[in-house]
Design a protein around this nucleic acid. Sequence first.
RNA 1: GCGUGGGUGGCGGAGCGGUCAAUCGCACCUGACUGUAAAUCAGGCGCCCUAGCGGCUACGGGGGUUCGAAUCCCUCCCCACGCA
Length: 401
Amino acid sequence: MFEFRILKKDKRTRARVGVLKTPHGVVYTPAFVPVATKGALRGISFEEARKFGSEIFMINTFHFYVEGDYKIVKKFGGLHKFLNIDYPLMTDSGGFQVFSLGFGLEHGVGKISNMFPGENKPGQHPKDNPAFIKKNLVKITEEGAEFKYYKNGKKLFLDAETSIKTQKQLGADIIFAFDECTSPLSDYEYTKKSVERTHRWAVRSFNEFEKGPKTKQALMGIIQGGEFKDLRERAVEFISSLPFFGFGIGGPLGQSKKDMHKILDWTLPILPEGKPKHLLGIGDVDDIFNGVERGIDTFDCVNPTRLARHGTAFIRGGRINLKSGRYVNDKNPIDKNCRCRVCRDYSRAYVSHLIREWEIYGVMLLVEHNLFYILNLMEEIRRSIKEDKFLELKKKYLGRG
RNA sequence: GCGUGGGUGGCGGAGCGGUCAAUCGCACCUGACUGUAAAUCAGGCGCCCUAGCGGCUACGGGGGUUCGAAUCCCUCCCCACGCA
């Protein structure tokens, strides 16, 4: 029922084209997985996103769990029925919220930090940063993570068993083990303790997954270990010793993109080649190229949709922000190289006007463009690998380097 | 014409004797955003510069009181409402 097959390997890099078979259909890889955290992509329908080439979507367990809505989904018979779609789906385990609502807030950083604890501008030590406010929203113990839910202050406990049980009820095709995503500012000692705990959580996740009647789902293990080579290697060794269907590479991914590349270089070559590898939460254009080059098969990311909501559009060679006054009279399409409907039919001026006037349609157009852009990129990447022209395509998009 | 209340930065609107170049919204400008607490967040927003607990000009116009006025007084202009 589940199968991952590599169809073609690039001659010069670790890039490969594959096909991932799930009970709800097939996904050609490398693939981008748009994120619909609470069951919607925000600004575009699943149907539309499908047309642009999205074959699978990511939904979040945490958000369905905290609100108790997973019970409703269960009554419907799972997410596919609830959302009324029959495409492949993934659910994240809630492990990211352990970070984003915990250290992420506390340290005022994302998964890739450019804020070195010792190298801040004067007065810019994280502790002096207004964002650095201890919120104590998440308490992590051996057992699991205790959240103080930001909406109502209620305490809420999530652990491996609960996450997997919930994910089974949600019924996505591909589900993830419960993990702790540490902070880019976590030190070696903490990260070491944390990965070891994540490994115990992985075993617990797996055991819970195996328990009871078999579901039509595949479970992915998650590689943690921060920016520490030996911890990442240990994680690969441990996680790949369990019979997971595939692997997710989890953040934190260091202090810079270079660190991220290093982490991928440490981990991917020693993971079982034939299994699918997912890079969790990464989705900048350059990151996708660098990930694919190192052997990543799938990416999920909030980037195209969130950036769109914030007025930013992907264009060849970077991004532009349509909120800026520079575009009010710009008759050009968002990206002259793009074949999407938005770029075909509308000017930057119009989209900019809508965004600045707070018209929802402006966001819808940008979401459409950004998703099209990334999904089309994936298509081009797949083709380039088949034709052994991956590096040429990378160069075309990113220039030299 | 009489009465009352007002005229503050692009707009709305605080301040009602000193620490006010002036709270706060909006608008505007710049930046961020990577398993979504995010249609969000951070910073800027009178003029000048050697960019500083710096200089200059400012709270309808003019004149005064005071060590000191956006804040008090006089006068003129304008606006809103009420009465004729």
